[in-house]
């Protein structure tokens, strides 16, 4: 997988929406059925059933407070860290129920990485930021192996060339866009299968955003990606599948071109044409 990724870093990014010619047939990576989320009394998500395809980018769109981030956080059980949050329904990763009592949440989050809205590098060096996951999970045999993992992860996140001479600098010294790519590298270093991104570009300028979008398109070769975004253009550019949420309901899901050119549901139509939201 490293070989492929490295070749792709050099190659120009593929066209945003077009399916790759050698695309494997659609395989469901994560399956969710009738997911309901309550925050104390508030019913935040109602009966959401959505399939997330392997090595695809699935975009979750919708107005603020529609439950898309809540849904994203269900996928790696980040909602567990909130006391008042209750999740019911069926959520599977490769056919395994991730809310099963026997599931090791910590291991689950290692295979489902997450990138947050605001870049949140740890107050450590660039190197230590990326090495954090491998160190916690013991994913390396010796020092040179760890260095290899860090360098590869930074390469895949398209950041290596910019920081290779200053891996010892604090992660917080990077620009916003670089910090976000550092966070992506940090997630990749653990070797996840799925990467969840919660509005990864919302605090970045257009150039840094374009760079991240290119990166997402490259990462699709190796990872299943779910991205929450407020920008419909971004959803259209980077995703293959799009799901539209509104007030806690999943209104419509389907192929991205179809959602944006020929939405079936009236609310979707209204949202993507900017009539509300």
């Amino acid at each position: 997988m490293d070989e492929i990724a490295m070749e792709n870093i050099e190659a120009p990014p593929a066209a945003a929406i077009a399916e790759p010619a050698d695309a494997p047939e659609f395989r469901v990576k994560m399956k969710t059925r009738n997911v309901n989320v309550h925050y104390a009394e508030k019913h935040a998500l109602r009966d959401v059933s959505l399939d997330i395809g392997e090595r695809e980018v699935t975009a979750l769109i919708g107005p603020s407070g529609c439950g898309k981030s809540t849904f994203l956080r269900c996928l790696n059980r980040m909602n567990d860290t909130i006391d008042i949050c209750r999740v019911t329904g069926q959520l599977e990763l490769d056919g395994q129920d991730i809310y099963d009592a026997g599931v090791d949440v910590v291991q689950l989050r290692a295979s489902i990485g997450m990138v947050f809205q605001k870049p949140n590098p740890f107050p450590k060096s660039i190197f230590d930021n990326v090495a954090y996951g491998p160190r916690v999970h013991g994913l390396f045999s010796d020092k040179s192996d760890l260095e290899e993992v860090v360098v590869q992860s930074l390469r895949k996140a398209g950041l290596y060339d910019e920081v290779k001479d200053r891996l010892g600098d604090p992660g917080t010294s990077l620009s916003g866009g670089q910090q976000q790519r550092l966070c992506i590298a940090r997630a990749i270093a653990v070797g996840p299968e799925v990467i969840l991104m919660d509005e990864p570009c919302s605090s970045l300028d257009p150039i840094a955003t374009a760079r991240i979008e290119e990166l997402i398109d490259e990462l699709r070769q190796n990872f299943t990606i779910v991205i929450v975004t407020h920008s419909m253009q971004q959803a259209a550019r980077v995703s293959q599948k799009t799901a539209f949420f509104h007030l806690g309901d999943l209104i419509e899901q389907g192929e991205t071109p179809q959602i944006f050119t020929n939405p079936r549901h009236e609310k979707t139509q209204g949202y993507i044409t900017g009539r509300f939201g």
Binding site: M78, T81, A110, G113, P121, G133, V136
Partner: peptide, 24 residues
């Protein structure tokens, strides 16, 4: 957000405290 970042990488609570929260 720092804690979330650490949990999101699959660190446990005490790992997060020792390696992220306390150093910060």
């Amino acid at each position: 957000s720092l804690r979330d970042g650490s949990y999101g990488l699959g660190a446990t609570r005490s790992e997060t405290i020792r390696q992220v929260v306390l150093p910060a």
